[in-house]
Amino acid sequence: MNIFRFAGDMTHLISILVLLLKIYATKSCSGISRKTQELYALVFLARYVDIFTEFISVYNTIMKIVFIASTLAIVWCMRGHRVVRRSYDKELDTFRHYFLIAASLVLALLVHEKFTFQEILWAFSIYLEAVAILPQLVLLQRSGNVDNLTGQYVFFLGAYRGLYILNWIYRYFTEPHFSRWIACVSGLVQTALYADFFYYYFLSWKNNAKLKLPA
């Protein structure tokens, strides 16, 4: 494992911890898209079905468990916690996420590495992860104002994607048979979705002003 991948995994973990912290500390999930969180839960559940059949490393197994558990905890808070649930911006979170699930599934059935149950689930999870942030970005754009922790959450998620691209570049040059174009192309698409957010995040940081997205 190279430093880029490790840093990517850590920023991914930090993003989820920031989100849990926001929900726990403020007892509020305003500004957070429940649909995006449910998509991530589905992404992790689909991708990590290999947790019992495929052993890579202790690190991988622990991270898989942490990602599944933390994302399910967030979804549970947003749906089941009496106080948190009330702050959910239901009327702003209207992105038709079932469409994303259906499109990812169709694409996974058409484009995959091998026609097996696990490989199709894996490809599905890669495609779905690439677009899972869309309901969140749309919600932020609609509400205009982005609170600090929500901004940090999306920033760390975007940083994770950027670092994974550096990781693939590194692996491409250091490993003799590194080719995984499904993950790389999806990863590029996913990172591109953050470009707009990053632009405004950078502006607000440079001007030392509150993060605001244009309507």
């Binding site: 991948r5 995994d9 991708r47 890579i56 898989k64 990602f67 894996w122 994974y164 490993e175 048979h177």
Partner: peptide, 10 residues
């Protein structure tokens, strides 16, 4: 090799 048969990233 292990790289090609397993999805070793998260």
């Amino acid at each position: 090799d292990q790289e090609s048969k397993a999805h070793d990233e998260l």
